[in-house]
């Protein structure tokens, strides 16, 4: 409870008589502090329960230093062709999944918005989108690898599902916040349903849609570099293989290429975003 509310309650209401009612009132008035105290106590207990102590942390730092030493110098040459091929595959997966995900999220977002559609339609759509968002892409990746086999097809499907789960939800929220006055005016002109969506709804949300879509592409690009770990295509497979062979100099080469890609993507998406503002 905030200080102002507490102040007003203390002034207006008399303290109850009896020990237990007084304690209850105290706890209620200071509920925020009580919760914070409980949270701190829990973290302290959990840390000791997991065996994380000073000795363990020092041991970890020691091993970390040895590991970092083995990463250098990065070895780009040994697997250069594989790295290039897999990076291109990762980027292609991200682009395809973004296009598919965004294209499907648009109609799903419109169908899931409670201010445009009846509950009989919004409920199943919203359930589907929540389901798509419920699992980490790695888990979805494992399922698709089992379903359609190893390779980038599984990766594209995984990232498409993840994209729908995420931007589908954001699309719905954006549509539910629009001004219905503008929609009413377009409806009053006698516009057919799709024209109504095009003029009453889309102009109000289109710039936010572009922002979400760009954000999702960033996210897909990052995820496409890890999906290879479960065999769903992209650079992650080569990275994971290098780890397993203890080829740490190849690992660092791949990590540096991934970092370069992400920086390039930040730069490009910033430009695109500015273009649409």
């Amino acid at each position: 409870m905030d200080a102002l509310t507490r102040h007003v309650i203390l002034r207006r209401e008399k303290a109850p008589s009896g020990f237990l009612p007084r304690v209850r009132r105290r706890l209620m008035l200071h509920s925020g502090q009580v919760l914070a105290l409980l949270a701190v106590a829990y973290v302290v207990l959990a840390v000791s329960n997991l065996g994380i102590n000073g000795e363990r942390i020092l041991r970890g730092i020691d091993q970390g230093a040895k590991f970092i030493a083995r990463l250098f110098p990065p070895n780009f040459a040994a697997r250069w062709d594989d790295i290039v091929h897999d990076m291109v595959e990762s980027i292609e997966m991200a682009i395809m999944a973004s296009v598919i995900g965004i294209a499907l999220s648009l109609p799903l977002g419109l169908l899931g918005a409670r201010n445009l559609m009846p509950p009989a339609i919004t409920w199943p759509i919203r359930f589907l989108i929540s389901l798509f968002r419920a699992f980490n892409p790695i888990i979805i990746g494992i399922i698709f690898v089992k379903a359609v086999g190893f390779g980038p097809l599984a990766g594209v499907l995984t990232l498409s599902v993840a994209s729908i789960g995420f931007i589908g939800k954001l699309f719905i929220e954006a549509i539910e916040e629009i001004s219905l006055k503008q929609v009413e005016a377009v409806r009053a002109s006698g516009a057919p349903f799709l024209s109504l969506i095009r003029y009453g709804v889309m102009p109000q949300v289109s710039s936010r849609f572009v922002g979400f879509a760009m954000y999702q592409f960033d996210s897909n690009l990052r995820n496409s570099t890890t999906l290879g770990i479960v065999g769903a295509g992209g650079i992650g497979g080569t990275l994971f293989a290098a780890f397993q062979r203890f080829d740490y100099r190849i690992v660092s080469a791949i990590v540096i290429v991934i970092i370069a890609l992400i920086i390039l993507d930040e730069f490009v998406s910033e430009r695109v975003r500015r273009l649409f503002e």
């Binding site: 006055k181 503008q182 005016a185 377009v186 409806r187 009053a188 002109s189 006698g190």
Partner: peptide, 19 residues
């Protein structure tokens, strides 16, 4: 819709598509 288009409407808050 055909009846609607034969009836024009003006609103209190104008209800223009602002963007």
């Amino acid at each position: 819709r055909e009846v609607r288009r034969r009836i024009g409407m003006v609103f209190q808050e104008f209800n223009l598509v602002e963007r």
